[in-house]
Each structure stands twice: as C-alpha cells, then as structure tokens.
Design a protein around this nucleic acid. Structure first.
Lengths: 176, 176
DNA sequence: TGCAAAAACGAACGATCGTGCTATTCTGGC
DNA sequence: GCCAGAATAGCACGATCGTTCGTTTTTGCA
C-alpha cells in the first residue's frame, strides 16, 4: 500500500500512532490480560499475567519488541496525545498487576502484609529488564534470569507454613 | 555553533554518537563507579553504586534521562558500531555490579549462596524500572518504590545472625 | 453491465536531515 | 601587525519525511 494510501485512512501521523497503540492494547488484552483473568483467582492469575506477557512480547509478530516499552522511550519527553495514551495504558497495566496481587492476598495465598502496588512494580521491573537485556544484549540467559527473579518474588510473597523466625514480622501471616 | 562547525570535528553522525557515548561513559565512571570503588568493599560499595546511579541519572545535565538507556532502545535493533559499543558498556556495568556483589559475598556480608550475576541483574532491573516510571509516568513514588525494592534485595542477600530455621531453605526463605 | 462512491495511487510541496565544499573568522608565533 | 593554520560558518546537494491534491482503480449495488 502506498504512503498516501494509508494516509487517507488516518488523517495524520499522530493519529496513526494512536490507532496503532489502540490496536496493540486490544491485542494485549486479548492475549495477555484476558486469558489470565480466566485463570483462578490468586497466584495462578499472577503467574499467568507474567507468563503471558513473555509470550506476547517475544511473538514473531512484534519484531520491535513490546511496542509500549518502545513507544514509552520514544515519547517520554514528547508531550501530546500519544504520550498521554501511553501513560494511561501503563497505569492500567500496573493496576491490573496490582489487582491480581491484591486478590492473591485476599485469597490467603499471599501474605497479608504484601504491598500489592510494590509487588506489581517489582514484577514489571523484571519484565522491563528482560526486554532491555534480551533486545540489546541478545542474552538468552535473560529469560532464565527473569523467571528466577519472579519465582523469588512469588516465594517471598507466599504465606509460609511456619511463623517467620524473626518475631517482629508482626503480621503472623502463617495462616494456611 | 553551526551544523557544519560540529561536523568538522566528528566526521559523521555515527562518529559523533560514539563520541557522545564515550564521553558519557567517562562521566559515568567519574561520578558513579569511581566514588563507589572508593567506598569500603562489601555492602557499602553495592549501595554506593546503586545510589550514585540515581544521583547521576536524575542530574539536571541529563534532561533526557540516562543516555545509555535511551540509546539502548534506539539502537537495540540497529546494528553497527554504536550498538556494539552500547552492548559493551552495558556488560561492563553489569560486571561492575556483579563484582561488587561478589566482593560482598567474599567479605562475608552477603550469603555465600548469593548468585552475584542474578543479584546484579535484579539491581539493574530496579534502576531500569525507575527510569521507565519516572520518565513516562512522572511518578514521584517511583524513587521510593525503587529504594524499597533495593532494600528488600539487600536484606535477602545479607548474612543472618542465626541459621535459617528450616535448613534447606537456601536462598529462598530470605525475604523478611 | 453501468455507475457512483470508496479506496488506493503518484506526483509534488516544503521542511528537515546528513554530508561535502568553499569562504570567512579566529588564534598563536614571528 | 602579519600570516599560516585551525576553527567555524554559509550554502547547497540529495534523501527522506509528513502532508496535500488530483487522478486512477476498485468495489458495491441497481
């Protein structure tokens, strides 16, 4: 299709960028968030969100990697509707992660003193780092690293069978 | 200075980009790595590396944020000497972090089963996430989040006063 | 099949970019 | 102060980019 051909559909480059992002969000929800929400509440859902993101971000149909991360670094200092929309989607994604964590807490799978927003932040950190490393360093170990960090975070959030050794862990989350 | 003025010094745009990165590396070593190496071996040095990076990346003289991260997402799919140099510097930085962790292990401040490369990866994840969040979301909480994640990692790597309660809880039982 | 509406194309515009070439201005040693 | 050499500026080139517009092709329907 010719340049002016696509231009007839979207009225400006900015509009096209927005539409691309909107379409990406639709795909992201269909392939990452949706399937995860169909998993049982709790750790399983958190895991699914994390793992689905990996499958999605390394799909062959995304040769440039996660489009949101790529767009983020392109538009983070470029005000306008594209940037605004990106901010919105990132907040939504973080909120989705947070909510899944909060549910895991409510379900008694994660300790009640887990800070959902903080843990969501930590999860997303791992994803961002994986993206950075795998794309720039082409490091196959990146995926292993990411999942190891993830497992460690999950482990540290899980309710323990026994009371933590150090007694001022005041929540006594040993509920299971 | 005029466009052709700067062009006379560097012979191509690519060369200028390389020179900018080289200069950035020099500054980075002078302001982040160097001061940290002057700290005592062990946790103090790891902390210094982490904290100095924060000071450096939010300096007023870097309005575009960390130039290496910015360049990474611009060049990660653009082969050439600039990309190669970026890869090199990222590996150096990770090696520096790893080495500082390894020393902390040797000094007996971090547990001997700590995976230095993995922990270095986790530290850098936090930095990358901070960069992403603070630049795109302009979220002031990002810094707090980052330091909380950092403290948690440090905590989980530290040697405990007592032997872990259940003896096969190797690196996992660590987080407070 | 014919025909109007929609879709796609091609050419061209002004702007910007990377680069080269030539002219001007600045600088230090006599 | 003068002059060689270096530093800087000005200009122009081809390429690319975002955009517009007039023309051609395709499509859906009577």
């Amino acid at each position: 299709m010719s340049k002016s051909g696509v231009f007839a559909h979207f009225e400006s480059k900015e509009n096209l960028q927005l539409e691309v992002l909107r379409s990406a969000v639709a795909h992201f929800i269909a392939e990452v968030v949706g399937p995860a929400l169909r998993k049982p509440r709790g750790e399983a859902r958190v895991r699914a969100l994390f793992e689905n993101w990996f499958d999605w971000s390394s799909k062959a149909s995304l040769p440039g990697g996660c489009i949101f991360i790529a767009a983020a670094s392109e538009f983070d200092d470029q005000p306008g509707p594209v940037r605004d929309y990106l901010v919105e989607t990132q907040k939504d994604w973080l909120a989705t992660l947070s909510q899944a964590v909060r549910i895991a807490v409510d379900e008694g799978q994660f300790r009640s003193d887990v800070d959902a927003q903080q843990l969501a932040h930590d999860f997303y950190s791992i994803l961002l780092a994986y993206h950075h490393f795998s794309r720039l360093l082409r490091m196959p170990a990146a995926r292993v690293r990411a999942f190891r960090s993830f497992e460690q975070l999950i482990e540290s959030a899980r309710v323990r069978n026994a009371v933590p050794r150090d007694s001022h862990a005041r929540k006594t989350g040993a509920r299971k």
